[in-house]
């Protein structure tokens, strides 16, 4: 709330920064919206991860290998991952364009990361690719905690596979799904590396999210005071989303045995 930068004496700024932010700053609204869009990638990733977890949970040979392959992208350095995807998406030399052209899925090359429409979906795909294995492992642990006799009993009572999934697996998996959702939300608020490397927030702010905007305002434009106001908004927004998510899933998963 102070007006402050390394080169100015500090004065009390009242709410002027928030006023500027909410009423005059179009990039702020754009980046807030982009953050929401980017956040929507976590339900997609969790859905995919759930399907994969169910597949890996079946008794087939080599499931350990599958699990390792799907997980491996998660702990890798995101900067390197971003650079690799940047290249795959490249208009002239990228593998994705080559494959799409060879399969005649498109007539013209697509400049994925340089086009206003494609940039965000492209980044989302890369983000999902990196995190899906992590969600899968969490959901897999949740699946393995479900006592098998429950399913067997339901099967004896004549419940179909779909019914068993809906009425036994899914409710018991709720804490694990909630955990993934939480991690996904926090992750989408904080994934700076991937977006910075892949698009730098461009083209024309198409992929600018709050965290990349904060970085730019603070450390490129040296407006620390304004960036601090942005950070407060980011944090409040994160709290609201978390609280809503907690409500929606019944809140039982967020409970941690706190004291003893």
């Amino acid at each position: 709330m102070q007006s402050w930068s390394p080169f100015k004496p500090s004065t009390f700024a009242g709410l002027t920064h928030y006023q500027e932010l909410f009423f005059y700053d179009e990039v702020f609204w754009k980046s807030l919206w982009n953050t929401v869009v980017f956040m929507s990638s976590s339900p997609i990733a969790i859905g995919l991860a759930l399907a994969l977890a169910l597949l890996v949970d079946t008794r087939i040979r080599g499931r350990g290998v599958y699990r390792a392959i799907i997980f491996i992208s998660y702990p890798l350095m995101t900067v390197a991952v971003g650079i690799i995807w940047r290249w795959l998406y490249d208009e002239k030399v990228g593998l994705i364009n080559y494959v799409l052209l060879s399969l005649h899925l498109t007539q013209r090359r697509i400049a994925f990361l340089d086009s206003y429409e494609w940039a965000m979906p492209s980044v989302v795909v890369a983000a999902v690719w990196q995190i899906v294995g992590f969600f899968m492992v969490i959901l897999l642990a949740g699946l393995q905690n479900i006592p098998p006799n429950l399913e067997e009993a339901a099967a004896l009572d004549g419940a179909s596979a779909g019914q068993r999934f809906r009425h036994i697996t899914l409710p018991l998996l709720r804490p694990a799904i909630f955990l993934c959702l939480m991690i996904g939300v926090i992750n989408s608020f904080t994934s700076f590396d991937l977006i910075y490397v892949m698009t730098g927030g461009g083209p024309n702010y198409a992929t600018e999210v709050l965290i990349t905007y904060i970085y730019r305002v603070a450390f490129v434009l040296s407006k620390f005071d304004y960036a601090a106001a942005l950070t407060i908004v980011l944090f409040v927004f994160l709290l609201i989303v978390t609280a809503v998510a907690n409500r929606l899933t019944g809140g039982e998963a967020g409970a941690v045995d706190a004291a003893e």
Partner: peptide, 25 residues
């Protein structure tokens, strides 16, 4: 002790990225 545990748990919600400006200063 309870207060400290509660403080630690609630601080876990704050991502590092939200504190970069004070951390830098």
């Amino acid at each position: 002790k309870r207060a400290i545990v509660a403080l630690l748990l609630s601080c876990m919600l704050i991502p590092f990225q939200a504190t970069i400006i004070p951390a830098y200063l």
